[in-house]
């Protein structure tokens, strides 16, 4: 979905209100991020989409990168540097800004696995003690507060994230993801990542 002119104007006003140095510098700060995260922050591999991501979640992650607790290879390579000199006020402003953009589904999963992924997401797998994702991430994978939107993120990104928890990365993430993800099989991860990549 494209932003209409008036929506954009409102955004700029909202954004200016949180940024002490509104105007010229603001677009520069955003471009520093969209350079990797893609046009309108819709994602550009390996950087995930930020558009429509939850504000509190983005802020938490920026903190995790700058404190080096999100420690997988791409985070180290790209985001540790990108957050090294980010002031809390700037982080807050950027998180707010990206959370107001309209997300766009990556649509890059395997259609054949979509139904299985939806089933795990919505119902969980009681027999293998896997929690239904929907309870926390919401019926349309939209997230809330500190719980991220998953809908429309890229297949490769989601797959990597779910694998990495099982591999011991990002162990300091708030519960319960390290435990939930490490119970998933490779097939289940592919199914979930496929389904979620199509969710609008």
């Amino acid at each position: 979905m494209k932003l209409t002119r008036s929506r954009r104007a409102i955004l700029v006003i909202g954004f200016a209100a949180v940024f002490p140095w509104a105007g010229h510098a603001e677009s520069l700060a955003i471009r520093n991020c969209t350079w990797c995260h893609g046009v309108s922050a819709h994602g550009y591999s390996p950087a995930p989409g930020l558009a429509g991501q939850r504000r509190e979640y983005i802020q938490n992650q920026l903190k995790n990168f700058s404190e080096h607790t999100r420690d997988n290879p791409f985070s180290r390579l790209y985001m540790w540097g990108a957050t090294a000199n980010l002031s809390p006020a700037t982080a807050h402003g950027l998180a707010f800004y990206f959370s107001t953009l309209s997300p766009q589904a990556a649509n890059d999963g395997n259609r054949e696995l979509e139904a299985e992924g939806r089933s795990i997401y919505q119902l969980g797998m009681p027999d293998s003690n896997t929690a239904a994702c929907v309870v926390c991430h919401g019926p349309n994978a939209e997230g809330v507060g500190e719980i991220p939107r998953l809908g429309g993120l890229a297949y490769t990104y989601l797959k990597r994230r779910l694998e990495q928890w099982g591999e011991g990365y990002h162990a300091a993430a708030r519960p319960p993801m390290p435990r939930i993800a490490s119970k998933l099989s490779a097939n289940q991860i592919e199914a979930l990542a496929s389904y979620l990549s199509f969710v609008k």
Partner: peptide
């Protein structure tokens, strides 16, 4: 232990409750 861990994934590590989407 596997089952109680499952409950804790949603209800919190010490059963304190959790503000999810629901």
């Amino acid at each position: 232990e596997a089952k109680i861990g499952y409950c804790q994934d949603c209800h919190g590590p010490s059963g304190q409750g959790y503000r999810g989407f629901y």
